[in-house]
């Protein structure tokens, strides 16, 4: 594809996503690498197969993901994020897509027990990890008391950020059951709520932490 193809005549600067560069983390590919755009599609393979452990894509391939304790087979292109795989292919829609840039936490899942934003990890990269989504916590019952606390303290308004908040807090309270207010705020520091439920989210989390502490010990 010619790189100027979408540029209007006497364009000053804007070209509709048609300039294509390569250079990414951990490697600099000579500053500017022009590679075929998506329409050209076909990946140009470079070099021999020896020394290669695995080669995936660009076409969709079936991979296995361990989600909520179950091995699930899903057919994805390498470019699909874990979030897309969960939502569009596996219909696990409790995990929400909001900012698509790792900035809001609505897509939080656990990877080996740690909260991560599933919009910023490729589905193929989630292989070999234990993936936990809000659905698992739902199915396994409310052992933490967190769901009950969210309901009791009204930790949801529109509810779109709520599963992500719950996932962040579930991980934080698992590793620090006696969390105080500051700990709770830090635990959800990567989650954004536009309705402004934060105070009630904090209260919900603290009530669980307080229960863990055997009552009465919580500061807020």
């Amino acid at each position: 594809m010619k790189h100027d193809e979408h540029k209007p005549p006497n364009s000053r600067s804007i070209s509709r996503r048609s300039f294509i560069k390569g250079a990414g983390a951990l490697a600099a590919a000579s500053g500017l690498v022009r590679t075929p755009g998506a329409d050209a599609g076909a990946a140009t393979s470079s070099g021999a197969q020896e020394g290669i452990v695995e080669r995936l894509g660009p076409d969709a391939q079936t991979i296995e993901l361990k989600i909520n304790g179950e091995v699930r087979r899903v057919t994805v292109e390498p470019r699909e994020t874990l979030l897309r795989a969960l939502r569009d292919h596996l219909n696990l829609t409790g995990t929400k897509l909001v900012c698509d840039r790792g900035a809001c936490g609505a897509c939080t899942v656990h990877l080996d027990g740690k909260p991560v934003t599933s919009c910023m990890i490729l589905a193929i990269d989630a292989r070999g990890h234990e993936i936990t989504t809000i659905e698992k916590i739902r199915i396994k019952g409310d052992k933490t008391g967190l769901f009950g606390a969210f309901v009791e303290h009204d930790g949801a308004q529109c509810g779109f950020c709520t599963p992500g908040m719950v996932m962040s807090l579930a991980a934080a309270l698992a590793s620090n059951p006696k969390a105080n207010l500051e700990d709770v705020k830090r635990a959800v520091a990567g989650n954004i709520c536009r309705c402004g439920t934060y105070p009630h989210v904090f209260a919900a989390a603290l009530s669980v932490a307080r229960d863990t502490r055997g009552g009465g010990a919580g500061e807020s």
Partner: peptide, 15 residues
């Protein structure tokens, strides 16, 4: 407490 709070907290509410 809101009647659909649990559905929202567990991600079961359908948007």
């Amino acid at each position: 407490p809101r009647v659909d709070g649990a559905l929202k907290a567990t991600g079961a509410a359908r948007y």
